[in-house]
Design a protein around this nucleic acid. Structure first.
Lengths: 248, 248
DNA sequence: CGCTAGCTTGAGAGAGTTCAAGAATCGTGG
DNA sequence: CCACGATTCTTGAACTCTCTCAAGCTAGCG
């Protein structure tokens, strides 16, 4: 856990079955991170990749040539407008898939950037496509995963963006989405990232966060190898998150 | 086309193959609207349904017991916040599927409301599920359709909502999405609906629309059986839509 | 013809932005 | 281990877009 060597990102050297259980693909292929010595041929072409914060995994418009499965850390799928401002379209956490466009030979729809330190599996597109062609169960799961991403997008649209709802409430909701598992730890993003997700200026995010910390709802909780953390009063955040623009 | 009888919504009586071609399901089952006398057993359980504006097709939380395929008109998928304000999460136009949750026995994620007059096909959930279980091609298409919905949601998130982008630009973008096919006709929604999509007050939508009409970019174009229409200067709208919050 | 729901328009208030400058933090290299 | 440069964060103050409330208007429908 605290071993310095952990930062070195060895390829196919770890044993993290708990991470793999959350992956959509688990039990369908030998995960290299879990089972480096597997006889399963699929293990041969799945690579383990590590990324530092702010590393770009792939760019918008690029040809999608691999599918990625996030084992740990947080990534953002982002688009930039003509003014150069980022607009974050989705947040990926452990177990999420990225670049599923590969299954359709489409170009990437976003730029994918690591927010924290990130560990992921890489599955080359040809193999992935062949895999989905032959395996029934995987297609079922892909559809389910795609639907779940859609539900998340719907949630963002209805609860997270839009000036209808005050920024403080939206930020509270976002923080709850950024919890590490079920703990009271919360991934601490850059101010720019909060802004990119909620459509607010980083200064506004800053002011609100500081208010929350003044109220004791939020505390800075140092940094781990995976990035910076908040410690939050989940109860209080939930209460805040369910506040509305005043009832009818 | 102009026959008064068209409004009467006869069940399984029409012949509109062009509509069916746009449907994700086309060529996989005999569409009742297209082929009422088909021998195909599937035709027996697909119903044709007509809805008046503001009719509710299904409600959030309801058990999903059928899948719908929109043949013509516009529907909105909406959620209401505790204050009773609507937040529109997606717009469905001809060819789109609704209530795919049925495939997973989930509860409906939205309330579906007709915006214009609407024609759609109804496929009961049990049959649909059995269908997807046995037919390979349909699963492929469902995944593709789900991905395309996701792309649309991404577009909304990145280009349509958020105070970062001035309301006028966002409204222009929305209007372009509401074009009838590739013509210069644009579905004319209620002010409340523009508000629900863009997260702005109806009054603001009203002011901007009137500005656009003053500039000659937009004209009211009467109403058809499918609802009210604008006629828009697509070029000008596109220009407006690509304006940004000032370059970097 | 009158009613209702939707649209229009105005004026004041407020949430959030922008600009700017100073403080903290991080990573780097000596 | 400390110093330094570069981000990132913080805070203030003026400004602006959009909201809110309120009232009058219009159009569609029985």
């Amino acid at each position: 856990m605290g071993t310095p060597a952990m930062a070195a990102i060895p390829k196919r050297k770890r044993n993290e079955s708990s991470e793999c259980q959350r992956c959509v693909l688990h039990n369908l292929a030998a995960c290299p991170a879990r089972d480096p010595a597997s006889q399963d041929a699929s293990a041969a072409w799945i690579d383990s990749i590590g990324l530092q914060p702010d590393s770009v995994l792939f760019n918008l418009g690029e040809r999608a040539n691999a599918v990625y499965c996030l084992r740990s850390g947080v990534m953002k799928l982002v688009r930039y407008d003509l003014g150069g401002n980022q607009r974050i379209v989705r947040i990926l956490t452990a177990g999420d898939l990225a670049a599923l466009e590969s299954a359709f030979e489409h170009a990437q729809q976003h730029t994918a950037v690591a927010v924290t330190q990130v560990q992921l599996c890489r599955i080359p597109a040809p193999q992935f496509r062949q895999w989905t062609d032959t395996n029934d169960e995987i297609r079922r799961r892909l559809l389910a995963q795609s639907r779940s991403a859609l539900r998340k997008a719907d949630y963002w649209l209805s609860e997270l963006v839009g000036n209808t709802i005050p920024a403080r409430v939206r930020l509270a909701r976002l923080l709850l989405q950024l919890r590490v598992g079920d703990s009271d730890e919360i991934h601490r993003l850059r101010l720019v990232d909060y802004g990119g997700i909620l459509g607010i200026a980083p200064e506004t995010a800053c002011r609100i966060l500081n208010e929350l910390m003044d109220d004791g709802v939020l505390t800075k909780a140092g940094r781990t190898r995976d990035g910076r953390l908040f410690r939050g009063d989940i109860e209080a955040l939930m209460q805040l998150a369910s506040e509305e623009t005043a009832a009818a």
